[in-house]
């Protein structure tokens, strides 16, 4: 079955037994991403409420975050969004090797992000700043909330990066096995969409935590 004949065919389920609907698959993915945005939306709402309530404490607490590592991670994630897009472009041009290469680079970037995050968290934890720690509980409520949200939001985002790595590794496997081809690359596109979302959420997290000093 040719990809082109399927796109634009409203009623493609009438075609044979093999059910394949690339437009539908993408629609499903967008809907799923929508739920992800709302999931994080709940957290951004929480952040907004407390930032309004404790803006001075938030500013003081944010000064303790390492803007350097944050910036580096922003650059890494933005570039990885580019490489995953290039990987899709490569398979559309039938360049399997380049596609594999670009996807691998994306995975490497993702891992670099996580390693940076690890060092950043560890530095904070070594300074005694983590949820329910004595050091943190001795501080004003606004700072407890700031670091609470910092760990929860970057942690949940980190979890999404980790899931993204797993998804991208699967895509790599499919690429190598020729399951993703010039005619059939919706899977890769959907994985790319997911990765862009992970990137997008970070673009909001970064200024809200690191740049409010």
């Amino acid at each position: 079955m040719n990809h082109n004949t399927i796109v634009g065919n409203e009623y493609n389920h009438t075609i044979e037994h093999v059910h394949r609907d690339d437009v539908g698959a993408k629609m499903g993915m967008w809907l799923f991403l929508f739920t992800e945005v709302l999931l994080f939306g709940g957290m951004f709402l929480t952040y907004a409420v407390y930032r309004y309530q404790y803006s001075e404490q938030f500013r003081l607490a944010a000064m303790e975050l390492n803007t350097g590592i944050g910036t580096l991670n922003t650059v890494i994630l933005l570039t990885s969004s580019l490489t995953v897009a290039l990987s899709i472009a490569a398979i559309q041009k039938k360049n399997k090797f380049l596609s594999i290469l670009m996807l691998s680079v994306t995975v490497v970037f993702a891992l670099m992000f996580l390693v940076n995050k690890y060092f950043e968290w560890m530095a904070k934890i070594n300074h005694g700043i983590f949820p329910a720690s004595e050091e943190l509980l001795g501080r004003p409520n606004g700072q407890i909330l700031f670091f609470g949200l910092y760990y929860v939001m970057t942690g949940l985002h980190g979890l999404h990066v980790l899931i993204g790595v797993i998804v991208l590794l699967f895509m790599l496997y499919f690429l190598i096995k020729n399951d993703i081809t010039l005619d059939n690359y919706t899977k890769l596109e959907n994985a790319g969409l997911y990765w862009h979302l992970v990137d997008l959420i970070w673009i909001f997290l970064f200024p809200l935590f690191y740049l409010i000093q």
Binding site: T35, E36, L38, L39, F40, G41, G42, M43, T46, P131, A132, N141, I144, L145, G148, L149, Y151, V152, L156
Partner: peptide
């Protein structure tokens, strides 16, 4: 998704003592 995140926050709060 909104209840999802709310519930998650309660679980995290119970487990790690984050004060949200």
């Amino acid at each position: 998704p909104v209840i999802g995140i709310t519930i998650l926050l309660v679980i995290i709060e119970r487990t790690f003592g984050v004060g949200i």
